[in-house]
Amino acid sequence: MISYSVEKEYQGLVDAYEKAGGDRSALLSKDVAKLVIHQNKVLSADGVTGIKIETKETETGVNIYFLVEEGAKIQRPVHLCFGVLPREGLQEIILKVNAQDNSEVNVIAHCIFPNAVKVIHKMDAEIEIGNKAKFNYKETHYHGDFGGIEVIPRARIKVGKGGVWQSTFTLSQGLVGKLDYDFEVFCQDKGIAELVVKAYGKGHDDIKVWEKIHLNGVGARGLAKTRLVLSDKAKAEVKGETYGNAPYARGHVDCIELVNGTEAVAKAIPIVSVTNEKAKVTHEAAIGSIDKRQVETLMARGLDENEAVDVIVRGLLR
């Protein structure tokens, strides 16, 4: 349970969580597995049948062990909430995930740094998805408008035979600050990996996205998808790599970067490689300004130009 001394911190975080679009009732519900961490303090960590969450506080963060037991099909999404409320702070999350064979779970994570002037949030994850296990991970960030934040998420994900890993990382509220995203997935036979990153860079935001998918098993499938919108002086570099190393492996890299204004800078570097003659990997990357015809279509419905741009941007990042 929550001890009195951290009650205030908990309330503050839950308030910010709700403001960021989180579901407050889920954090209070008994039959929802959840984990709430402020800086290096674990405010709540509750499993449900089929899910075990173990935590260990360190000087700079928290080590987490997250287990989904064999065959467990978790009905309600697991909620994770990581936050740093003060203006300054360091949060290092070391995460080990073991989703055993035939398990299924959806995880929704909110990362909340509303006042960050000098905050570093690091996540290092080792993730194992068992045979025929399904793991869906959605991480949404809520940053304030100060831009003083560095987000460094890294994950190594192993997907077993017929397993599925799907992750979506969204950072479109507040200033990004610095993002250095690096996810790498290894898929065995018929394993599926989908990595999606969506971010809206403004001000002096600096975005680096690196998605790597190794399709090592027969019939493995991968998608590395990125959607970025850049305005002001934001800059971004996206590297999407997919390796087709086995027969019938199918991979696709799909990157769209919209540049709004003349000072933002976008780069895309797709790398597709095939070492097996029966594998196939494709890529498409489009960098450019917002399509004039899209804007005019919306203007012809009565929207002003900036309202039209806003609808297009929100759609792309949805």
């Binding site: 399509d291 015809r293 929207l303």
Partner: peptide, 17 residues
């Protein structure tokens, strides 16, 4: 458009999301 004119395009655009 605000005055009441609108257009359905011959080849309408696609807008993701």
């Amino acid at each position: 458009a605000k005055k009441g004119i609108s257009l359905a395009w011959q080849e309408p655009v696609r807008i993701e999301g």
